[in-house]
Amino acid sequence: MAMSGGKDDGEPMMEMNTTPLIDVMLVLLIMFIITIPIQTHAVKVDLPVDDPNARQNPPPIQPDKNKISIDPAGVIMWNGSPIDKVTLRQYLDRTKVMEPEPELHFQPDAQARYDVVDQVLAIIKKSEVTKMGFVGNEQYRTW
């Protein structure tokens, strides 16, 4: 018998056919992967828009440029002095009301933890600073 699947004594085959079960599981796995939303975490920072009027009337040179840096240990520095997050928010609130508003330079170290950088960016976003720039991005070229 060419189609015999088991013993030749005429008893029914007792093995379960797992091919349909595997097919159904693969289809369910693909459907599950497709329906999972992409998990992203981002801090939205409104960057300045290129304004043609700004090119005609360039803003005056700011005498006071504040720099926030983060070292690899996660220490937040304000113009070279270590500060905590509450003090950072107070400094940002003070600079926001200054006329003209000083520039804020943000420079995290390449080895700084993303969590600390993300928290500092969230504080900057909440303080509504309008003149902010990322400096020192050339350190990320090798990454």
Rank of each mutant, 00 (worst) to 15 (best):
Q139M: 15
P100K: 07
E99Q: 12
Q62D: 09
K67G: 02
E99M: 03
F134C: 11
Q107K: 08
M13R: 08
S127L: 13
R141P: 00
R89M: 08
K7G: 13
K85I: 08
L92F: 03
K131D: 04
G5W: 12
D50S: 12
D118W: 01
I83Q: 04
T130G: 01
I36D: 06
M16D: 13
K67I: 02
E15L: 07
S4H: 02
I83L: 08
S4M: 07
E11C: 02
A112R: 04
P108A: 02
L29P: 06
D71R: 00
P102K: 13
E103G: 00
E101W: 02
E138Y: 05
E103P: 08
T19W: 07
L121K: 07
I33F: 09
I34M: 10
V117H: 03
P108Y: 02
A42E: 10
I38V: 13
V43T: 15
D84F: 06
I34L: 12
F134I: 14
D46H: 10
I30P: 00
K44T: 12
K126T: 01
M14L: 14
L21N: 14
L28R: 15
D84V: 03
M16Y: 10
N79L: 14
T35G: 02
R113Q: 02
R141D: 10
E101R: 01
A110V: 08
G74H: 04
E103Y: 08
K125L: 08
K125W: 00
P63V: 12
W143Q: 15
I34S: 10
L47I: 07
F134K: 11
T95E: 05
L121F: 11
G74E: 01
G136H: 11
I68P: 12
G74P: 01
E128Y: 14
M77T: 11
S81P: 03
L104T: 02
T40W: 07
P72C: 10
V24Y: 08
F32H: 09
D50M: 09
Q107D: 06
T35I: 14
P20R: 01
P20E: 09
D8Q: 09
V49S: 11
L47T: 09
I83W: 00
S127Q: 15
L92A: 10
D51F: 09
K131G: 05
M98N: 05
I123W: 07
M132P: 03
F106N: 03
P12L: 01
V49Y: 08
G80L: 04
H41Y: 12
Y91M: 03
Q107W: 00
N57L: 08
I70V: 15
V117P: 04
